[in-house]
Design a protein around this nucleic acid. Structure first.
Length: 228
DNA sequence: CCAGACGTTGTT
DNA sequence: GTCTGG
DNA sequence: CCAGACGTTGTT
DNA sequence: GTCTGG
């Protein structure tokens, strides 16, 4: 799946790469983007701007926002059918901007965090869905979810699911409003394995309140004499 | 028709 | 908003 | 995703 | 065990 990621490039570089302007007054690099954080995305409604939405999708009909704890990801295998995602899949898609994501590999009782990158750390977009939710007091929350799919062999040994990283050409197609469900699902394919890289990192990343460049430094673990 | 639910991940 | 269960 | 918190009653 | 917070 995808429960933590990075977006560490300069604002200027992100704007140039995605041909969109950052709308937020404050924009900060994230070495530990976590669920419930406000994070940069591009919606199909306003593809010319980069906005900050809350990670954990709250459908417009939700009674409260608690559902967002379980909607940080949407499975590609069922996203067109699940009530929580169906409307957003048809009408409210987005690009979730990143340059790496974390997965925890289970080795016995141990959980080792890894960072997975594309092209040695290049910016990429994950396929996402967004929603607008209004609470009983009339306050509005904009939120999003990241679509997941089966991980290819090269990284499946770390974790068997991964975020739907879009090929560059498909980024614009994902935001188009006139495709069929089948055509959209076809856009969601894992990158070629040769472009994927991974390395283990410090457990500093475990706590969502930790931040900073140190989190993405390679860190080796010694378990029973072997290095991980 | 109305009422009630609506999610993902893991199980190394 | 949309589906399933009754 | 991981970390951290987690409850009610009555006031013998 | 299960939920909330980040």
């Amino acid at each position: 799946m995808c429960g933590r990621y990075t977006i560490t490039k300069k604002a200027e570089e992100i704007e140039k790469r995605f041909e969109a302007r950052i709308s937020a007054e404050s924009f900060e690099k994230k070495w530990n983007a976590a669920p419930s954080n406000l994070l940069p995305i591009i919606t199909n409604h306003e593809p010319q701007i980069i906005q900050q939405y809350k990670w954990g999708l709250i459908p417009g009909w939700a009674k409260d926002e608690a559902i967002g704890f379980n909607t940080i990801n949407a499975r590609v295998e069922s996203v067109t059918e699940k009530p929580a995602f169906k409307f957003a899949f048809t009408k409210q898609r987005c690009l979730v901007l990143a340059d790496g994501y974390y997965e925890w590999k289970k080795i016995g009782k141990e959980k080792i965090p890894y960072r997975i990158t594309l092209d040695d750390g290049a910016l990429f977009a994950m396929a996402g869905l967004w929603e607008k939710w209004t609470n009983p007091q009339g306050q509005i929350t904009h939120s999003f979810s990241v679509i997941t799919l089966p991980a290819p062999h090269k990284i499946a040994h770390i974790h068997d699911r991964m975020p739907a990283i879009l090929s560059r050409i498909n980024e614009q197609h994902w935001l188009e409003n006139d495709l069929s469900d089948d055509e959209r699902i076809e856009l969601l394919q894992p990158p070629a394995e040769k472009y994927l890289g991974f390395y283990s990192v410090s457990k500093q990343v475990n706590s969502a309140t930790n931040e900073g460049p140190d989190l993405i430094k390679p860190h080796n673990y010694s378990v029973q004499g072997s290095l991980f």
